[in-house]
Design a protein around this nucleic acid. Structure first.
Lengths: 108, 108
DNA sequence: GACAACATGTAGCCAATCTACTTATCAGGA
DNA sequence: TCCTGATAAGTAGATTGGCTACATGTTGTC
C-alpha cells in the first residue's frame, strides 16, 4: 500500500481504535496493525505526531502513567473526537462511493 | 470531501476514465464529475499537472488536435497505463479493506 | 553482555493537491 | 456591440501530512 493513500484517512482510524477504550501510543500502533490484518504498520514518526495533532485539535485527551517502569501517555476520545469520528465515518462512505463510481473496481 | 483524501487515489481514477476511450483534459474533468455523481469537481490546477505527470511516467500518451477553433490535447492509456490501472484497482481493494477493518463504518 | 520488545519522541524531506492566476476561442443575450 | 458563461489548457507557489532517520530509556531473555 502506497504511503500517500493514507493521507486524510489516518485521523479517523486513530480515533476509531481509541473509541472503545483509552490506549497509549504503542498500543494504538498494535491495534491498527491487528485491525488491518497486518497491513497498517505505522512508523512512530507518523503516529506520534498525529496523536499530538489530534490532541491539539481537541479530539483526544492524554494522561501520563507508569506501568512496569515504563512511561505511557494514554489517549482517550473527547466528545469533540466522538463527533469527528462519526463524521469521519460518514466522509469515508462518501469517498468510497466516489472512488468506486469512477474506478468500477469490479472490472479488473 | 477533504482535499487530502484524494492523495494517491487520483491517478487510477484518471486512468480509469480514459480507459474506454481517449479523452482530452476538460472531458476528463467532466467524466470524473459525472461518474462521481457530482462530487469530484477537480480544479484545473490539480488535473493538468496530474495528466503531465502521468504522461511523463509513461501511463498516458497525448496528441494535439483542434476542434471548433479550440485546441485539445487528447490523452489515451498506454499499455503501461493499462497495467498501472489494474494494479491501482487491486490496491484500492486492499486499501478499502484496511480502512474498513479499522473503521467499522457500519457502526456510526 | 547483547539484543529484542516496549515506549515516546523530534527534525527535516517530499510530493500531490490546492488556490489563484493567465491566455484564448466561441455562443448567446442584452 | 459588449458582456458573460462555457469550453480548453496551462503555470507558480503554498500547504501539509506521512515518511525516513535519528535519539533516549526500560525490561526481559539468551
Amino acid at each position: 500500500m502506497k504511503a500517500d493513500a493514507l493521507r486524510g484517512h489516518l485521523d479517523p482510524m486513530i480515533l476509531a481504535v481509541v473509541e472503545p477504550e483509552p490506549l497509549h501510543g504503542y498500543a494504538i500502533m498494535e491495534a491498527l496493525l491487528e485491525r488491518s490484518g497486518g497491513e497498517l504498520d505505522l512508523p512512530t514518526g507518523t503516529l506520534y505526531p498525529a496523536l499530538r495533532r489530534l490532541e491539539r485539535a481537541g479530539y483526544l485527551a492524554s494522561e501520563w502513567s507508569t506501568v512496569g517502569g515504563r512511561k505511557r501517555r494514554t489517549y482517550q476520545l473527547t466528545s469533540a473526537g466522538q463527533k469527528m469520528l462519526a463524521s469521519g465515518k460518514q466522509e469515508w462512505l462518501t469517498f468510497r462511493a466516489v472512488v468506486e463510481g469512477v474506478l468500477r473496481p469490479g472490472q479488473a
